[in-house]
Amino acid sequence: MTNSSSNNNQEFQDPLENYDPKTYGGRLEQALAEELVGEIEHEPYATIPPSMSVFDAVHKMAFMHVACLLVEEDSKLVGVFSDRDVLTRVALEYEHCKDSPVAEYMTTDPVFVYSSQSAAAALSVMAVSGHRHVPVLDNQQNIVGIVSPQRVTEFLKRSL
């Protein structure tokens, strides 16, 4: 009985025996690869409905000292309205457009990341795609937050 068990042990080869865990050049690289977007601070965040007027949206942005509002309809992200939208679409025409719904001036189809993606995804959106404020969604497409360069910078500093 003992001999038989010993033979079985010799025949068995653990498929993970030769597995080399991934190695990283440093703590930051490991954090970018293994930590999730959800681990970057992504709250608080501010949402508005698409029907809100440009006037009210600008006031909310200024009052809250935030650079980006998430435009939400039926709990789903339908756009973002940022200070860049104010600069490029609203400021010079403010008197004309301030009573219009923000839906007409927001950025539709915004780039977003899932909270379950790696932290590198947030950095990628900012560095490669050039978007500064990135909505964070859960896997059911619900808004759970927003990551900003400031929040990513804090994450990087923590991981250095």
């Binding site: 995804a121 560095a127 360069p149």
Partner: peptide, 28 residues
């Protein structure tokens, strides 16, 4: 902020620049 992000992305192209943005991370 953007300049710094680009600098860091240059250091970790394997982690950062190959990210697929907006796609489902896994099937629902």
């Amino acid at each position: 902020q953007k300049g710094l992000m680009e600098y860091i992305a240059e250091h970790f192209p394997g982690q950062v620049t190959v990210q697929r943005i907006g796609g489902q991370p896994y099937p629902l």
